[in-house]
Design a protein around this nucleic acid. Structure first.
Length: 887
RNA sequence: GCGGCCGUAGCUCAGUGGGAGAGCACCUGCCCGACACGCAGGGGGUCGCUGGUUCAAUCCCAGCCGGCCGCACCA
């Protein structure tokens, strides 16, 4: 294509579909050993197989992809390992709903095998849409490594781990009080319970005491549970009830006779100081029950309706039963009063149902020792969190761990590999399916029907994705190269669920940390800082954003908002802003495109470079350093700001502008050299940006590269070089920019038309700057429309009838032909003077402060002296000019 | 209740023991042969409040006020 004819605005769509295919089919995402001679591995947090790409995923993809592209370019053997989670509850729900809609059947209308088969079918057909959506963002994981948590290898890992832990006695079965989700009809773990504020009431009930006229007043928020009461409890030192300890209370309605106990747990200040004890449906009561050996009465069915212990209320849902029981108590005169009360009630994080604590036989994993090992790994910095403060969250969970309830009453997931013999009652765990009892040799063998918590297999992810425990698979997937993995990138909401568990499991089974660094990125919120939710309808659809602004702009927006912060408030307008930036790059290319043919492959030696060329190369060198350092520390906000500022302020606004005269000029050698530097710098810019904006950079690279060069995705990432530091040229340029900006400022202040040319006189005692200005007359004309420039020493006379602006090194005078509004100019200068005076006072005050002079470090004193001198220069310039005006 | 975080320009947020910053928004003037998804210029902040440490505090410490998050529990 002819490069001159490229359109004014960049079309993201064409580039996106083109380059993704080329990368993917060309196997560019596969890890290859490179010059860094090191591996680098990021485990992608496996999205749910039911998932659809949302803004949070987009951030996940952006932060990880930027990192892996960076490391790939740095020459690491870089693997980003993708996968998918079977998401037990979520997936089973989706299919159950679908089957109900289509066939009006529930899962119980099928055998377990039939229903699980349906889920697999759904998974093959509709599951994993998200993996396709990740591609539209430019994600570059090695898809050949993709793993599903219910694939063969993870299955084996789960079974091996379970069996080993079972045999070690760390996995045990117990009747214990658990969180029962009546909608899922399954136990869930503590981590899956969300406490929400609910308006309820304190109900004050009256319990009779046997063989006595005394009644006990007991406050409760859950009156219906009285049907499961097996004791009443008071504090041992509570004078009010001391006499009653050891007597018998009568539970209303069911008239159960229960002991009145003393236990330290009771708080005399709370409620009435008297507690009803329901070990079957309350966590604390369960503990009291254990201490006092109380019987447990379970009053609920799996769906949270009352069972036979509900007596007349059997079959009623707890909510209705509460009302009915209160009516009955009222009738019996045993409801004394009702007080409004706001309290926290547990809800299932998936089903949103009210959780009913219930005693049930479940499988638990004893995590006490594993947790302390996991704490140690982070305390000793074997694994480090970025930002470090998240380690507190990690510790807070692991320092007081509760044993993990790992069984779920579902069908979709890893079935618990425990087998029972119906004949001899033997129970054992096995890595393989069993049909014969090893003890009695009979084949009346059944497997435990429950499945494991989804996080059990997720916890093994660092191991199983690299082939563990299958030796052949470990070799194929290069376990020894990539384990331990390098960096885990995820959100703070799953530090407990996932990060901690991977750490525990990996340490347990390999005695090695699973990852060296954990980068915790922010949570994406809407522009007002609210969570994105269906009810607020404030969700931002990544696919829409990509459609509207392009994947690069969307990625750059997310990256620019990612550092050590905990939230990104995403405003589509911001994406629009960065879309403009992408377009700016496109147009910078359009500017240099016609000069590419002139450019040499190599930069000329430094002695031949012009001041402006040295300046831009020096600035480019600095920004390369910032990019390398900031990406390494996950400060993508710094990276994006640095490259944005460089491209806009340095490259486009100044270097391109000062290059126009040369490129349009007659000096062929200068032209060629400038074309070479432009091309060199632009190739670096494109490479520096590639981790964040892969599409446009790959597109532009295709125009910039030599025929024998490969795609940008595997080019070297620009590094800092000592040979490209040009301090003098940077100083010169900064002074030049000061003066040009000063002239533009003066022009604007007296409304000189943009095209009108002016005469300017500069007064400076800075000899270097004077020479530099003198050599740049052409640029003064093109950048500030100065057709006549005189550079003089400050000892010379200033022009009459002119306006003036002072920098720290140079006085800029703009003589005016017409009438000047003297008062206006005096006012303008007075204002400047106040500022300059303030500045000068600040420094001189320090220099006359003895304590400062004796205590401050030398370099600070030197700096303050320099600042004072400059401020004084500037102040003097302004004062002189003012004196002129006034005279 | 325990633990943590935050309070800097209209908005969203960086930042450092020694010169208050960016983006967006706003105001003014410009379609200047890369770009109006643009160019040039500009205004705007008691760095939450009060003390302390220090030669020096937006930054460190304490207290307070305001906002957020996590955990535990509330009979």
């Amino acid at each position: 294509m002819s490069k001159i004819e490229i359109p004014k605005t960049y079309s993201s769509k064409d580039a996106e579909s083109k380059w993704y295919d080329i990368w993917d089919k060309g196997n560019y995402f596969a890890p290859k050993p490179g010059k860094a001679k090191e591996s680098y591995c990021i485990l992608m947090p496996p999205p749910n197989v039911t998932g659809k790409l949302h803004a949070g995923h987009a951030l996940d993809v952006t932060t990880q992809d930027a990192l892996i592209r960076f490391k790939r370019m740095k020459g690491f053997e870089a693997l980003w390992l993708p996968g998918m989670d079977h998401a037990g509850i979520a997936t089973q729900n989706v299919v159950e709903k679908l089957v109900w809609e289509q066939e009006k059947k529930t899962r119980h209308d099928f055998t377990r095998e039939e229903f699980v088969e349906k889920i697999w079918k759904w998974k093959e057909e509709y599951g994993g849409i998200i993996a396709k959506q990740q591609r539209s963002l430019g994600a570059s994981p090695d898809w050949n490594y993709s793993m599903f948590t219910m694939d063969e290898i993870p299955n084996r890992a789960v079974r091996k781990v379970f069996t080993d832990l079972y045999n070690e006695g760390l996995i045990y079965q117990s009747d214990y009080i658990i969180n029962w989700d009546p909608v899922l009809q399954s136990a869930i773990s503590d981590a899956e319970v969300e406490h929400k504020e609910v308006k309820g009431a304190f109900y004050h009930l009256l319990y009779k005491v046997k063989d006595s006229d005394v009644t006990l007043e007991i406050a409760t928020t859950r009156p219906e549970t009285l049907l499961g009461d097996t004791a009443v409890c008071v504090h041992p030192e509570d004078e009010r009830f001391k006499d009653l300890i050891g007597k018998t209370a009568i539970v209303p309605i069911c008239n159960r006779e229960v002991p009145i106990l003393a236990d330290d747990y009771v708080d005399m200040e709370k409620g009435t100081g008297c507690l009803k004890v329901t070990p079957g449906h309350d966590f604390n009561d369960f503990e009291i029950g254990k201490r006092h050996d109380l019987p447990i009465v379970n009053i609920l069915n799996k769906d949270a309706t009352l069972n036979e212990h509900g007596l007349d209320f059997e079959g009623l849902h707890v909510k209705k039963a509460r009302k009915a029981i209160l009516e009955k108590l009222e009738e019996l005169g045993q409801l004394k009063e009702v007080k409004d009360h706001v309290h926290q009630v547990g809800h299932g994080d998936r089903s949103k149902a009210v959780i009913e604590p219930m005693v049930s036989k479940q499988w638990f994993l004893n995590v006490q020792d594993m947790a302390s090992v996991a704490v140690d790994a982070v305390e000793t910095d074997k694994t480090t969190f970025y930002p470090k403060s998240w380690e507190n969250t990690y510790f807070s969970w692991l320092r007081e761990p509760k044993n993990w309830c790992i069984s779920r009453q579902l069908w979709w997931g890893h079935q618990i590999p425990v087998f029972y013999c119906g004949d001899c009652n033997h129970q054992w765990a096995s890595e393989t399916d069993e049909s014969t009892c090893p003890k009695c040799n009979k084949s009346n063998v059944t497997q435990d029907p429950d499945v494991l918590d989804t996080w059990f297999s997720s916890g093994l992810w660092p191991l199983s994705t690299l082939g563990w425990p299958d030796e052949k698979a470990m070799e194929e997937r290069k376990f020894s190269t990539f384990y331990p993995t390098t960096t885990l990138v995820t959100g703070y909401d799953i530090i407990f669920f996932w990060v901690a568990r991977m750490m525990m499991m990996s340490m347990k089974f390999t005695n090695t940390i699973p990852f060296k660094k954990v980068y915790i990125h922010a949570i994406v919120r809407d522009k007002l800082g609210r969570k994105m939710s269906k009810s607020l309808n404030n969700g931002i659809d990544p696919l829409e954003m990509i459609e509207q602004y392009g994947a690069d702009a969307f990625r750059f927006t997310l990256a620019a908002g990612s550092g050590y912060n905990r939230a990104i408030n995403l405003d589509p307008e911001r994406i629009g802003g960065f879309r403009n930036f992408i377009n700016k790059i496109w147009n910078a290319y359009r500017f240099i495109a016609p000069t590419l043919e002139l450019a040499d492959k190599e930069l000329p030696e430094a002695s031949k470079l012009t001041g402006h060329e040295k300046w831009i190369l020096s600035e480019l060198n600095s920004v390369s350093k910032v990019m390398n350092d900031s990406i390494e520390e996950f400060r993508y906000d710094d990276s994006c700001n640095a490259i944005y500022a460089f491209v806009y302020d340095k490259f486009c606004s100044w270097f391109v502008e000062v290059s126009k005269n040369i490129l349009n000029g007659e000096d062929a050698a200068a032209k060629k050299q400038r074309a070479t530097v432009l091309k060199y710098a632009f190739r670096k810019i494109v490479a520096l940006l590639h981790p964040f904006t892969p599409y446009i950079t790959e597109e532009l690279w295709s125009y910039l590269k030599d025929e024998n060069e490969d795609l940008l995705i595997i080019q070297d990432y620009p590094e800092f070089s000592d040979d490209l530091v040009f301090t003098k040229e940077q100083n010169d340029m900064n002074k030049f920019i000061d003066v040009i900006t000063g002239i533009r400022n003066l022009r604007a202040s007296v409304n000189i038309k943009p095209k009108e040319e002016v005469k300017v006189e500069l007064f400076t005692d800075d000899a270097e700057a004077a020479v530099y200005f003198g050599n740049n007359k052409e640029n003064f004309l093109s950048l500030a429309k100065v057709n006549s420039l005189d550079v003089r020493s400050k000892s010379e006379h200033r022009p009459e009838k002119s306006i003036m602006l002072a920098t720290t090194h140079t006085e800029v005078f703009l003589p005016l032909e017409g009438v000047i509004d003297i008062e206006e100019q005096v006012a303008r200068l007075e204002k400047q003077k106040v500022k300059a005076q303030k500045e000068f006072d600040k420094y001189s005050k320090k220099l006359t402060n003895e304590k400062f002079m004796s205590n401050a470090p030398d370099d600070v004193v030197v700096e303050v002296r320099q600042n004072a001198k400059e401020a004084e220069e500037k102040l003097k310039s302004i004062e002189n000019s003012l004196a002129n005006f006034k005279s």
